[in-house]
Design a protein around this nucleic acid. Sequence first.
DNA 1: GTTTAACCTTG
DNA 2: AAGGTTAAA
Length: 405
Amino acid sequence: MVKHAVLSSGTKLWRSLACAKSELRLDLTLACGQSFRWKETAEGHWTGVMGGRVWTLTQTDDTLWYYLYTKQNNQSGGDVSLQDNNKRADRRSKDDQRKDEEEPQAVSSQQDSEMEAEVMLRDYFQLHVKLGDLYREWGEADPHFKKIADIFTGVRILRQDPTECLFSFICTSNNHISRIQGMVERLCQALGTPLGQLDQTAYYDFPTLSSLADCSVEACLRDLGFGYRARFLQQSAKQILDSHGLQWLEGLRRVSYLEARDALRTLPGVGTKVADCVCLMCLDKPDAVPVDTHVWQIAQRDYKYAADKRQKSLTEKVHRDIGGFFRKLWGPYAGWAHSVLFCADLKKFQSLKEKACFNQLETEEEEEKCSKTEIKREFDGRGLNMMSENQKKAKMCVKEENTVR
DNA sequence: GTTTAACCTTG
DNA sequence: AAGGTTAAA
């Protein structure tokens, strides 16, 4: 049985590329809710599907390590073949293919595939975008960002497959991450091509547009617990194929943000927020700022954003205003900056924040002493640390009121 | 142009 | 309630 790869058991079959953690943090980037299919299969090791292949990724201080599994053909047990490589080439953009044509075919097929894997990875993580520079710019423009950014470094926007991204985000309405992950997993299991098995886990490609458009899909997905989203998924797939064609989604990469956003919003189940997520996370629109309830809260709590007339809900106007506000604050990569704050606000990453806060508290207040009675009074059963953390949080709030605006 | 309620499940 | 969208007032 094939097992999940682990770096410590030998680096021979792993490949690597130079990449500092300030440019990419796998744990934050892969688990902050922009993609739903990467799983931590061993400590610091993330396994998932990208470009129709199964990968395990991990990192050390200045190196990103990747392990690309050979294709397990369930029928014949075949290995990676030239045919597979050609298939993958077909999936890539025309620009990439044109480059290939211009290059002399002097490299061996193994070197070629190694090169291709690295190209895919660089593309997926958009490593040409210098995150360190952007963090510095956002920090100079926004003191609150700077404070968060020191803890949440290396949060990148992935360049996902448009079909996977769109249909995953149609699942996100009125929903939370843990359930979305389960739904996407079941979606791939039910309608996607099997890619192989590692330990007890089977991996699948994301379903194609054609398979999603089939009339039977709605009933199938309702059985799998998708609720009212089942119809949206099937209808959107059908609408894209019927009135636009297979290449339409990827083509939206080459039109403006506003045009892509409006085009997406014609699809059932795609409103302002989902359209912005898709624009940002797979259509090369780094200025798209998805405004959901969390981002709205962030805007109010950390930026003293007040709606015109005490808006009770996330209206279209609030979306526009908050998106515009953050674009003005952070510039053309506002969507990337937004994801850093979004990530920092996730419950699952609070421990990270609290740890840093605790350390900072200690350095700031080395001479200050809390009396034991105070600790006892504040202790609420969640652990002694929490008291200091809450103090720190309150302190941060006061600071924010002084620094923001 | 704005507001409200219903929509499917489950952690 | 939970990362929203839609239809109808």
